[in-house]
Design a protein around this nucleic acid. Structure first.
Length: 439
RNA sequence: GCCCUGGUAGUGUAGUGGCCCAUCAUGUGGCCCUGUCGAGGCUGCGACGCGGGUUCAAAUCCCGUCCGGGGCGCCA
């Protein structure tokens, strides 16, 4: 007989014989009668053990199986209004597939919470909790929503190397890799490759792949390995084209999740607000002025840091009733390391670069790239970058490069903000940070 | 890298120099209980991160170290 899921058994007729399997969540032993609560991916079903219906030694054996053991139960389905799923199983056979050791390093349905360290040390057990599964079901849908959007817009999905010879952005630290005796790094961004694909004439590409940053981050919004969502598009007239595309993408992805995950969102108690198009845009220098008007003070030069982001996020939410806004026209000096950023024609002290803020936190960074070879070289020289390290990349600008631009979005952070998760690690199965390399 | 905070049974905690061979809950073992779903009742088990130091006396104070959590820088 084929094993079916807890929710599938709901559809079966009364008295029907069926086979279900799962993890023994808990046993309620009342003496003459006992109940096994068994959990699978879809829900928790109940098996009734009664001394009236079975021999004492079988009863004792079943009742003494440790929590979280895997059981396969064959039995008759009987309707009852005393369980959530509306039925229970009267067993004909109970097979203990694997017995769980005692004690559990982490209780799956314990009445006491565990700390994050304990939970992530025993992540496979932690993930047995229903709400954890929900997060990753929603994550899957968010990915689907993004891909659905890019499909409609004629983007092709690409995958660029994660073992690379040079870094993309100044500042971010690289992980070293020994590559057949050569010095190599884990990619911190697909940036340079996306641009080369613009030179290749692909015109619209997107990539969803891990990125690695060896920074000494220890915050609730950083991990050393994260999923980066990037797109790049050619023949843009200005950064507005990229801002619009980003806005549509975010809006589409959120709507997709909202429409496809109603139950999951409700179980998690999350409501997704779909932003109106166009998103609010505030130039960087205006942000500074707004902060000043709000009475914010800086010890040194005015800049937008974590605290400022939060204040601006609250301000925009109150004034314009939206969780999203772009900070546009990043000053050239702020984007100093981003040598490939295109500057405003009318004011070279400003770039075409922008950030998208979601609930007071940076989600996206992007802009129009400088596509003219000589200007790009000039901008590299300004910050003292060695051209030699980027020779391969620079070649792509010599033989016909269209005007182009794109963005990078922190996918895990997107999910974190969307669901209001307290820590980005909750949005990742096995997060990597400055201390954690296992599991 | 800097700052703050913490490390006590499997898990989560109480305990600020002697009332502590350490509290409570959860878990776990045993017994009782025929409709539980935070079941209930009785009873047992189980811990001071590591290394130094101060003191008559250290879970408690000091130093070092390792490991968590949070903030900042930075960033997605």
């Amino acid at each position: 007989m084929q094993r079916i899921l807890a929710t599938e058994a709901v559809e079966l007729e009364e008295g029907c014989r069926c086979k279900l399997g799962g993890w023994l969540q808990e046993t309620k032993n009342l003496g003459g009668i006992a109940f096994l609560k068994i959990r699978d991916r879809t829900g928790v079903f109940q098996v009734v053990l009664s001394k009236e219906e079975m021999e004492e030694d079988r009863f004792e054996k079943a009742v003494n199986v440790p929590r979280e053991s895997v059981l396969i139960v064959e039995g008759e389905k009987k309707s009852t209004d005393q369980t959530d799923l509306g039925y229970e199983l009267h067993p004909i056979s109970i097979k203990v597939e694997t017995e769980a050791e005692k004690p559990l390093p982490l209780g799956v349905v314990d009445k006491v919470d565990a700390e994050m360290g304990t939970r992530f040390d025993n992540r496979f057990l932690d993930l047995r909790k229903k709400e954890k599964l929900l997060i990753f079901e929603i994550r899957k849908n968010l990915l689907d929503g993004v891909r659905d959007f890019f499909d409609q817009e004629g983007f092709i999905e690409v995958y660029t190397p994660k073992i690379v010879a040079a870094g993309a952005e100044g500042g971010a630290t690289l992980f070293n890799v020994e590559y057949y005796g050569q010095e190599a790094y884990l990619a911190q961004s697909p940036q340079l490759y996306k641009q080369m694909l613009m030179a290749a004439g692909f015109e619209r590409v997107f990539e969803i792949a891990p990125a690695y940053r060896a920074e000494d981050f220890d915050t609730i919004r950083h991990t050393s390995e994260f999923l980066s969502l990037d797109f790049e598009m050619s023949f843009v007239e200005s950064s507005k084209d990229i801002i619009d595309m980003t806005s549509y993408m975010v809006k589409h992805a959120l709507s997709y999740v909202k429409n496809n995950c109603e139950e999951e969102l409700e179980e998690l108690g999350v409501e997704i607000n779909i932003p109106d198009f166009p998103f609010k845009k505030i130039p960087y220098r205006e942000c500074i002025n707004i902060l000043k008007d709000l009475g914010h003070e800086w010890e040194e030069d005015p800049q937008i840091g974590t605290e400022e982001e939060k204040i601006l996020g609250e301000y925009v939410e109150e004034e314009f009733d939206t969780e999203f806004f772009f900070i546009t026209e990043f000053p050239t000096e702020v984007k100093e390391g981003t040598f490939y950023a295109k500057r405003k024609e009318y004011d070279p002290s400003l770039t075409t670069y922008f950030d998208l803020e979601y609930k007071g936190q940076e989600l996206v960074s992007g802009g129009q790239r400088e596509h003219r070879y000589d200007v790009l070289i000039h901008q590299m020289e300004e910050i003292g970058l060695e051209k030699e390290a980027f020779q391969n990349y620079l070649e792509a600008f010599k033989y016909g490069m269209p005007p182009h631009g794109g963005i990078g979005l922190g996918f895990d952070r997107f999910l974190q903000q969307m669901l209001g998760l307290s820590n980005i690690r909750e949005a990742i199965l096995f997060p990597r940070d400055t201390e954690r390399l296992e599991p």
